[in-house]
C-alpha cells in the first residue's frame, strides 16, 4: 500500500487554477522528491495533503485515509515542516518545540530532543522574535524529528540553513528512512534531492510533468560528453546532439540518451583520443522541462 496517493487533485483560488490534476504516489520507506519552481503548486499540494485547504476534486489519501476527513487522526502519524516558519516572537524556541510536540500528541524522548537541539546548534532559551530564518526553521525541524512520525512532509525545509546544517538535516532524513518512515521532500535545491530521494516528481503550473526514479528520469535526458579526436570532427548538425562547442583541444556537447550509440559510432570514426562523460544532473532535467515547456509530458 502506498503511503501517499493522490489522483487528479485540483484546486482553484477564484479564477486561478493552482492545481490541475496532481497525481502523486509515495511508497513506504522512500524519500520522495517534489520539485518545481516557485508558484508551481508545491505548497498548495502540501497544504491539501495536510487538510489545511480542501481540494476541489480528486482524491488524496495518506495511509489509506482521506486527508480532509480524517485529518486529525492522520496527523498523529505525520510531521510537517513548512518552508516559511513563522513563530511567536515572545516565546522561546524551546517552548515552541515542546508546544508543537505536545500538539502532535507524540511521546517525546527528551534525550533525543536535546540531542537534536545540540546537533542543529539551536539556542532554545532565545525568544523566537530574535531568531533568524534559519533558526526558526531549526525549531520546526527539531519539533518534527524529535518525535518519530511515519510520514514526514517537508516543504523546502532547508531554504534558510547553512551548508553544515543542511548536512545535519540530510542525516535526519536518512535516519528517518532507516527507521522505515517515508518522506515527501519539496525542494528546489536539486543537489539535495539528488542526494536524498529515491523518486522524484516535477510539478509545473499545477500539474505533474515528470515522475519516476532518478535513474528512470535520467534516461529521459542528455548525457554531457567531452571528446578529443585525431581528425577534426563536426557533429553540430547531427540528430540528438546539442550545444556543440569547441573547448580547448576538443569539443563538449550533449547527447540525447537514445542517440548515444549512433553518435559514439560516428565519433570513433575520427580516431577518439579522449572521452569524458558526466551523467545528466537533475538540474539539466529540470531546465529541459522548463525550457521546452514540457511538451513531452
Amino acid at each position: 500500500m502506498a503511503v501517499l496517493e493522490t489522483k487528479g487533485l485540483t484546486k482553484t483560488f477564484g479564477e486561478v487554477e493552482a492545481l490541475k490534476g496532481v497525481d502523486l504516489r509515495v511508497e513506504k520507506g522512500e524519500v520522495f522528491g517534489f520539485i518545481g519552481p516557485n508558484g508551481a503548486g508545491k505548497s498548495t499540494t502540501i497544504r491539501v495533503l495536510l487538510g489545511i485547504i480542501r481540494a476541489n476534486s480528486g482524491e488524496a489519501k495518506i495511509f489509506g485515509q482521506d486527508v480532509w476527513k480524517d485529518a486529525v487522526d492522520l496527523h498523529k502519524k505525520i510531521a510537517y515542516v513548512p518552508g516559511d516558519v513563522n513563530l511567536w516572537p515572545n516565546l522561546t524556541g524551546g517552548q515552541v518545540i515542546d508546544y508543537f510536540i505536545s500538539l502532535r500528541g507524540a511521546q517525546v524522548d527528551q534525550q533525543r530532543k536535546l540531542q537534536l537541539i545540540e546537533r542543529f546548534q539551536l539556542d532554545p532559551t532565545k525568544k523566537c522574535g530574535t531568531y533568524s530564518k534559519g533558526n526558526r526553521q531549526k525549531v520546526a525541524l527539531v519539533a518534527a524529528f524529535a518525535a518519530e512520525a511515519d510520514f514526514y512532509i517537508l516543504d523546502e525545509p532547508t531554504s534558510g540553513l547553512d551548508p553544515l546544517m543542511e548536512r545535519v538535516f540530510q542525516q535526519c532524513v536518512i535516519e528517518a528512512k532507516e527507521r522505515g518512515s517515508s518522506v515527501l521532500l519539496s525542494s528546489h535545491i536539486l543537489s539535495e534531492v539528488e542526494k536524498l530521494c529515491d523518486h522524484v516528481a516535477i510539478i509545473r503550473e499545477g500539474a505533474i510533468i515528470e515522475s519516476g526514479s532518478l535513474t528512470e528520469l535520467r534516461h529521459l535526458t542528455r548525457t554531457h560528453l567531452y571528446i578529443e579526436t585525431e581528425a577534426s570532427v563536426d557533429l553540430s548538425g547531427e540528430l540528438g546532439v546539442f550545444e556543440w562547442k569547441q573547448e580547448g583541444d576538443g569539443f563538449s556537447f550533449q547527447v540525447d540518451s537514445d542517440s548515444l550509440s549512433s553518435v559514439m559510432t560516428k565519433v570513433s570514426e575520427h580516431g577518439l583520443l579522449k572521452v569524458e562523460s558526466a551523467p545528466p544532473t537533475l538540474e539539466d532535467l529540470f531546465m529541459r522541462h522548463y525550457e521546452t515547456g514540457g511538451e513531452n509530458s
Partner: peptide, 14 residues
C-alpha cells in the same frame, strides 16, 4: 494572517 496556523493545524489538534 501571520502564517502560524498551518503548523498548528498540521498536528492532531482539531
Amino acid at each position: 494572517k501571520n502564517n502560524r496556523i498551518e503548523q498548528v493545524v498540521a498536528t492532531t489538534l482539531s
